[in-house]
């Protein structure tokens, strides 16, 4: 097996996440798809670290994880705040600025 197969897997997972962000309406599922995209990019970083024979790719993947954790905290807090005022977790409902 070729180690580049990991990159193909990462591409496929990233695309599935991107389609999920475009297609799904529930804000929490959209968020999970964003996490999937971040995870796919982490897989690519780890594969690159192995292909190039240095540890830097893994360190970058580690930082991506930390930033993703911070992003999840803020994103879910925003979702909870919107749910409190609008009683809905759909990304279609906060459309008060629409004409």
């Amino acid at each position: 097996m070729n180690p580049e197969n990991y990159l193909y897997l990462a591409s496929i997972l990233f695309v599935i996440g991107a389609v999920g962000v475009l297609v799904r309406r529930n804000a929490i599922v959209v968020f999970m798809c964003i996490e999937l995209m971040l995870n796919a990019s982490n897989l690519a970083f780890v594969a690159f670290a192995r292909l190039n024979g240095n540890i830097d790719g893994q360190v970058v993947a580690f930082f991506v994880m930390v930033v993703a954790a911070a992003e999840v905290v803020i994103g879910l807090a925003v979702i909870v705040t919107i749910f409190r005022t609008r009683r809905s977790a759909s990304v279609d409902d906060p459309n008060l600025l629409k004409l």
């Binding site: 897997l9 996490e35 982490n42 897989l43 780890v46 670290a49 993947a61 580690f62 994880m65």
Partner: peptide
């Protein structure tokens, strides 16, 4: 998959954090 590619620390962090 991380652990398979030599990212043992990252694999453990993935389980704990994610």
């Amino acid at each position: 998959l991380f652990i398979m590619q030599g990212g043992i620390f990252l694999g453990v962090v993935q389980v704990v954090v994610y």
